[in-house]
């Protein structure tokens, strides 16, 4: 029998449509001009086609970001869906870029597209990976810092999915605090 063309096969739909954004730091341009929407996807198959096609995060140059957000949410604090929210933040020292960064990012993406946080998945907005010379960061953004139950549940599941030891503590920071911080470290609103 003829092989069915791939575009006619049933793909596995995701609960949400997601958008991939790419940020490349070019100091000659304003911040918004450096942020580009790459593409959107809403099936398991299209997620992998995209993931397998683009550069691994660990191979990006310093100053670049990937962001994955639900369709309709821009990857910035100012977006209406983000402004009351915050982020679970994972910071990685430089030596972990080679060993852990791509693995942690992929696990993060699978948590998002697989809706890993049960009834609290609706609180998830997206995730960002920052490649920086002084240390890389991965952050999972949620919509509302006051939804304590949701934030804590998401943090616990996320930490478990990343395979972090119970001795490791990760913190959740409100975007409002990060945006107005006077030192380089915003205070943690929650920890798990």
């Amino acid at each position: 029998r003829d092989v069915m063309p791939t575009d006619q096969m049933d793909k596995h739909p995701l609960q949400n449509r997601w958008a991939l954004w790419f940020f490349k730091n070019d100091k000659s341009k304003i911040w918004q001009a450096n942020l580009r929407l790459v593409t959107k996807f809403d099936t398991v198959e299209d997620f992998w086609a995209l993931h397998n096609h683009i550069q691994l995060a660990s191979k990006l140059t310093s100053g670049c970001d990937y962001s994955i957000f639900k369709d309709g949410i821009e990857p910035m604090w100012e977006d209406n869906k983000n402004k009351r929210g915050g982020r679970w933040l994972i910071t990685l020292p430089k030596q972990q870029r080679r060993t852990d960064l791509d693995h942690f990012w992929l696990e993060t993406l699978m948590c998002l597209i697989g809706e890993a946080f049960d009834e609290y998945s609706d609180d998830v907005c997206g995730a960002v990976i920052n490649i920086r010379a002084k240390g890389d960061k991965i952050a999972l953004w949620t919509k509302e810092t006051e939804n304590k139950e949701a934030v804590i549940h998401i943090g616990r599941v996320y930490k478990e999915r990343l395979g972090l030891s119970s001795k490791v503590v990760i913190g959740y920071q409100a975007h409002a605090d990060t945006a107005t911080k006077s030192s380089s470290i915003a205070k943690n609103k929650f920890v798990v």
Partner: peptide, 20 residues
């Protein structure tokens, strides 16, 4: 209901041919 996929299910599709 909500379309939830665990990591093993998702990983099973990583190297399947797909087109976008």
């Amino acid at each position: 209901g909500k379309k939830q996929y665990d990591r093993d299910f998702l990983l099973g599709f990583q190297f399947m041919p797909a087109c976008i």
